[in-house]
Design a protein around this nucleic acid. Structure first.
Lengths: 249, 249
DNA sequence: CGCATGTTTCGATCTTAATCGAAACATTAG
DNA sequence: CTAATGTTTCGATTAAGATCGAAACATGCG
């Protein structure tokens, strides 16, 4: 009689209105300080602290300390998915997205994560590689390079067979926080970013983690991966994103 | 401020241990009478009735009257999906160490989920397809078939280009209840199971959702996907599975 | 060092809802 | 019809936990 309550306890964590409000504030994938979550949920700081501790203990949140602030964020994409599914049952209308922040948009679009490419560009390119069969799921978080991929990377000047594997093999998936999906990481990810910069596809302005794509880069991505430039910030873009997010399934 | 409570109230419905137990009893997709659910949840009939009324009102269940019985069932696949996601969060809860139930073991190994293959066999085959590049991650839950996959499915007698896509494309990932990983679903999943049965790889005994693999099937899986028969029920199997289950991630 | 700010812990109060006994209601069997 | 079974409603009890005030803890600033 004791294996089931797992789902009951997980549900109980979300069942409280204050906790639910906090979780919904966090579905944007960003980290928020405790005070902000308390205010947003309409409860006192003490109450919020208690709630956040429970969510943390329940594995729904993770926390990061920075000075006297504590930044809470959703523990992973499974939690996001869970919240979306919860929102999709019952009479409640699906959730909405809020206005984007201009300053963050650039980083959100393309940036370095350690030494590989992240952001919506990183996720999109990785997905394109998977779609073309240049990359495939391996064991766990690992990614493997099928024969077609070895050839393709070879054309770019990357000899996959000569890349020394790391702990998770030659490539692995790194969870992208802004996109809540995976992007290419590991030795192959590092070499790919470096090679793409050498080829003049990307430019890395100093003193920022942002990555710019050159016109030549867009042309190459279209030609090699059938990956087209998304029209960021345009009305149709906002419409598309809002619309898609409105229907989780 | 008020669109959020929707998810809180939905979660509250599942948060009660007795209700959660009933819902879990219902994930098999069948309808159960109120008394049986009460007994299974370990509560009195009155209490169960109250719970069932709440679940019904919340849209998680539907009911069907037959004589003096009332048969309750999950309201739809969205509820199943929601429950599965709830079960998948948290710290990979310790799998129950219950007595080895032969009939359940069989279902756990291979069964039909609606009209496609599930269980450890379904997950294993799907992972093998991904590993070989016959299948690749698409947008969201979608799966796509790279050129190498089109050719491979073609050899099996499945013309991928002629399969009409559903809402989520030609194939998508379905979270496997027992394995906590994804298996192949969608139109391609349906056709694959059907084709494999036609080829004599699988057998589907009547009046059960279990799926048996024929010797010919094992041989084919090894040849086509390098997928070998796990040694079910042997000491080393129990050891291996116990060991793996002890380390969820 | 002293003060302001962000966060957590402790303790007490109070609301919510889970539970079951008793009884009513519904249906079938004899 | 009467009895038996499955299910729901009503009412009262009881346990769990959400909330906040007060205070402690941690960090940054002047």
């Amino acid at each position: 009689m004791n294996p089931q309550p797992a789902i009951a306890s997980a549900a109980a964590l979300i069942a409280d209105p204050a906790r639910a409000a906090m979780l919904i504030m966090l579905v944007d994938g960003r980290a928020h300080p405790a005070g902000e979550l308390a205010y947003g949920a309409g409860v006192s700081a003490q109450t919020a602290s208690s709630h956040l501790a429970k969510l943390l203990d329940g594995g729904l949140l993770s926390v990061e300390r920075d000075g006297r602030h504590r930044y809470y964020r959703l523990a992973g994409p499974r939690v996001v998915s869970l919240l979306e599914h919860l929102a999709s049952v019952g009479p409640g209308e699906p959730m909405r997205r809020r206005a984007p922040n201009r300053a963050l948009e650039r980083l959100r679009f393309a940036r370095c994560c350690y030494d590989h490419l992240a952001g919506s560009l990183g996720v999109g390119i990785t997905k394109a590689m998977l779609r073309h069969g240049y990359l495939a799921q391996g064991e766990g978080k690992a990614l493997v390079v099928p024969p077609a991929g070895v050839e393709w990377f070879g054309h770019l000047g990357l000899d996959v067979d000569r890349i020394t594997p790391g702990r998770h093999g030659i490539a692995c998936q790194c969870l992208d926080w802004t996109e809540r999906e995976h992007h290419l990481a590991g030795p192959l990810g590092t070499h790919f970013l470096e090679r793409a910069c050498d080829l003049g596809w990307f430019a890395r302005p100093p003193s920022t983690r942002a990555v710019d794509v050159t016109p030549k880069g867009w042309h190459a991505l279209k030609a090699h991966l059938d990956f087209e430039r998304p029209n960021i910030g345009t009305k149709s873009d906002l419409f598309n994103r809002g619309f898609r997010l409105g229907h989780p399934r």
